[in-house]
């Protein structure tokens, strides 16, 4: 992934809306640590995606700033996966602290299972299959529009 700032934000939102939604639908019936009805789980899962997207804009600004210290304005592919840790932790603590009050309280197992599955899927898609339908995407700094 070597996108521009705007490209990274677009890609993140696009992948959340596609891969993220699909994976949420698939994984929510199976997640541990919750006894809520499936409909509620879906609502929770999709709201988490919205939160990831909203917080993500801030994260991307930070990443962008950090990359400026590198000649290539880029960083290794694996970093795109490892950002799971800080982003997940921040969101998790926000949820636990009740700062994001439109999402119902969520158990750690449920949150981390869902979050990890979605994040890894998005990373995998972004590093390969994404290029199949969008042949111009990788050459345009990750911009879809």
């Amino acid at each position: 992934m070597v996108p521009t700032l705007i490209g990274r934000i677009q890609t993140r939102l696009f992948l959340l809306a596609t891969v993220g939604v699909v994976m949420t639908l698939l994984v929510m019936p199976l997640v541990p640590g919750t006894g809520a009805p499936l409909g509620d789980r879906y609502v929770t899962g999709l709201l988490v995606l919205v939160a990831v997207g909203a917080l993500g804009i801030g994260w991307e600004l930070l990443y962008h700033f950090l990359m400026q210290f590198r000649w290539e304005k880029d960083w290794p592919t694996s970093f795109g996966l490892l950002t799971l840790v800080p982003e997940g932790l921040l969101l998790y603590f926000l949820l636990r602290s009740g700062a994001v009050d439109f999402i119902d309280p969520i158990s750690p197992a449920t949150f981390w299972t869902h979050f990890t599955v979605v994040w890894v899927s998005m990373w995998l898609v972004a590093n390969g299959p994404m290029r199949v339908p969008f042949i111009r995407w990788r050459f345009r700094g990750g911009r879809i529009l």
């Binding site: 070597v2 521009t4 000649w71 290539e72 304005k73 880029d74 050459f139 345009r140 700094g141």
Partner: peptide
């Protein structure tokens, strides 16, 4: 080289 190929020349900021 920091990278195999300075990737950002083909997709990223430098290209832009």
């Amino acid at each position: 080289q920091g990278f195999n190929y300075p990737k950002s020349v083909w997709g990223g900021q430098l290209k832009a």
